[in-house]
Amino acid sequence: MNIYGLFIASGLAVGALYALGGVGLVLLNRATGILNFAYGALGALGAMLAWQAMQWGAPEPLVWLLPIFVGAFFSLAFGRYIAPHLSQREPVVKAVATLGFAIVILGFMNLIWIDTPRKLSLTTDTISLNFAGLRVTLTRLIAFGLALTVALSMGVFLARTRTGLMMRSIAADRDVAALLGTPIRRVETLAWGLSGALAGFTGLLFGSLVRLDPATLTFLVIPMIATTVVGRLQSIPITFVAGLVIGVIESLMTLYKPLAPFRAMTPFVVAIITLMWLQRGRLLTFANED
């Protein structure tokens, strides 16, 4: 059996998670101009509630649907009641405000669910197939498939549909978009809801595939942001690919002993190098562009 094949397959499995998270972050950023630090926390909340529902004996389809609605609901709440107050602030301040939201959600989760080892077992965890010597569960395939689907369809949605166009125009300049008669409220609500639903579902998959722990899932948003940086917060396909590449590099580093302990740095190093490379040759920066 080829050891490289095994590690690449494993890297793709982990990379799919980065990709899925990154794609959702870029989607919201393109539609509202906000980088959402609370994305991981929304997912964590969805996953914890799904676990709770399971403990109470809820049927599994409900367990799958719950995080989607929970994510959408809380994301909408932020988008509806807090984000408008920040619309005049610069992008960094908007992003930092979402960190506040993340902390609120994390605090609630820690109050409700006392820290203890938990496991989210989905039926799809028990179905698996063999891929390059690696057993891949259906949950992992769903994560990969969802990331791919979102990457393909959202790119088209934003680029080709009228709603997508409106989303992009609002993200570019909210005031001008409003002057042009874009129904800001409606479009933004849609964007927040959509991205929240995605965050919740991502959280469910992460809760099963990574660890069902509120703090871990909340702060996974940081390496996810690394993939979006590679895609310059704009390109969904590039973010998708970046997630996979980061996952594979991280996995392959395991094979080289001296570098193996440092492999968790991969997302950050890849992001910095790409960003520097993308911005090469620029001499001046201008206030209106990043």
Binding site: I222, A271, M276, R282, T285
Partner: peptide, 13 residues
């Protein structure tokens, strides 16, 4: 070469 959110993200990384 950059400012705003991009630079912030480089420092975050």
């Amino acid at each position: 070469r950059m400012r705003g959110l991009y630079l912030a993200l480089v420092t975050l990384m």
